[in-house]
Every structure is written in structure tokens, then in C-alpha cells.
Amino acid sequence: MNALIQIPQHRIFSQFPNIAFNVVVLAASMGGLKAISTILSALPADFPAAILIVQHLSPKVPSHLPEILSKRTALRVKPAATGDVLRPGTVYVAVPTQHLLVEPNGTLLLSDTPKMNFVRPAADKLFMSVATTYKSRAIAVVLTGSGSDGALGVLSIKKHGGMAIAQDESTSEFFNMPGAAIATGKVDLVLPLEAIASTLVHLVTSAAVA
């Protein structure tokens, strides 16, 4: 029975180098394109963690977010798809109208289950699934946006030993989302937008984990 329990863990971590955090999740709404672009453009091509992105977008307009972001970063960018295995240096972008989740075996799942916080995809859904799968090896980042999506997810991330970062008010076009996350009292760092990428690099690469 123990061997069966250990198999998913091996699948999750086997693709990653010996780093402290395997997954970084960025969540944003209004003003998010600039914020996400600023972070991704400052990350090196050999950034050793996987990156997941939830950006609230109108379901009525086709999303070109992966194409836009791929022109602004040295990292590989792709629309998230069910069955994708998370890999280092790759950015997976949630698609409109579907929740993005991480399965216990480390693969992605797109879901059309009901909206959460009036949105789909919801940062809370993704944060919660990442928290239960990657536990202390996950970093959640809540960026500019209206509403409170991400706050409940931050609580889950912290409950499972992960780390939470929020964009500060002075650099947020809309402070509702990061403000709600900060109000939980569980955010580890509140940073200006320009400091987030360098902080992520430091956190992910500074401490090796056996």
C-alpha cells in the first residue's frame, strides 16, 4: 500500500531539479497583462520551476494571451491542456471559461465545474489544487485585479506549507485582489511589481531540497 502512495510523489517531483520550490502560480485580473509580462520578461530562460497563470479574461473574446506572453519572455509558453505534465521553465496559461487544476499525479486538468468567486478560471481553485499536490514546494503570487479571487487559495497554500506573495498597492492598477490576499494575514511578502521576479529567482534557487 505504501508503494502505491509513493508513486504519485515520484511522478510530481522527478521532472524537477533539486530546488526549493517546483511550482509558481501567478493570478491576476484587471491590469494583469502588464504585471504578468513584467514578471515573465525578467525571469531567465533556465528558471527551474514550472509557472501556472490564471488571468481573468472575457469569455466572449478569443484569448491570445499565450502568444502575447511568449513574445515577452525567454521561457516556453503554452495554453494549459488536460494531461500536461508540469515541467521546469515552462509557463502554462489557463484558458478562458475553464478552471485549471493540478491533479495529485502532477498533471493538469481543465474543468468546466461551476464558477468560483463569479469567475472561471478561478485562482482559488488552482491555488487549492497546487497546495494539496505540491505542499511546501509551491509559491502563490496574487497580482493586480478586482474582486477577491486568490484569498481563499492563499489560505490553502499556507495551510500546506507553501509560500504566498502579493503585489503592493503602489504598483497595482487594482488592489482588490492582492488586498484581499493580504487581509488573510497569511501573505509572506508584499512586494512592488518590479521586485517579484528577482525574489522568485532567489527563492526557487537559493535552497536545495533533498
Rank of each mutant, 00 (worst) to 15 (best):
A3D: 13
L4V: 12
L4I: 12
I5E: 11
I7V: 15
I7M: 14
P8Q: 12
R11G: 01
R11F: 14
R11D: 09
I12Y: 01
F13N: 07
Q15M: 07
Q15F: 08
Q15N: 15
F16D: 00
F16H: 05
N18Q: 15
F21H: 15
N22H: 15
V23E: 00
V25E: 02
A27E: 00
S29Q: 08
M30C: 08
G31M: 08
G32S: 00
G32F: 10
G32Q: 00
L33P: 11
L33V: 15
L33R: 09
A35H: 03
I36S: 07
S37K: 08
S37I: 04
S37G: 11
T38D: 12
I39F: 04
L40E: 03
L43M: 03
P44Y: 09
A45N: 12
A45K: 15
F47Q: 05
F47T: 05
F47M: 04
F47I: 08
P48D: 14
P48H: 08
P48R: 12
I51P: 00
I51T: 12
I51F: 05
I53R: 07
I53L: 11
V54H: 00
V54K: 03
L57M: 15
P59S: 12
K60D: 13
V61N: 09
P66L: 07
L75H: 05
R76F: 10
K78C: 15
K78S: 14
K78V: 15
A80I: 02
A80Q: 04
A81M: 10
A81H: 13
T82R: 01
G83M: 06
D84Q: 06
D84Y: 05
L86T: 03
L86E: 01
R87M: 13
T90W: 06
Y92Q: 03
V93A: 03
V93K: 02
A94G: 12
H99T: 02
H99C: 02
L100A: 03
V102E: 04
P104C: 06
N105W: 12
N105T: 14
G106N: 08
G106R: 07
T107D: 00
T107N: 12
T107M: 03
L108D: 00
S111D: 10
D112C: 09
D112W: 01
D112L: 08
D112A: 14
T113P: 03
T113F: 14
T113R: 11
T113K: 13
P114I: 03
M116F: 13
N117D: 04
A123M: 01
D124K: 02
D124E: 00
K125L: 10
L126I: 09
L126G: 06
F127C: 02
M128K: 12
S129R: 03
A131V: 06
T132Y: 09
T132G: 11
Y134G: 10
Y134L: 07
K135L: 13
S136Y: 12
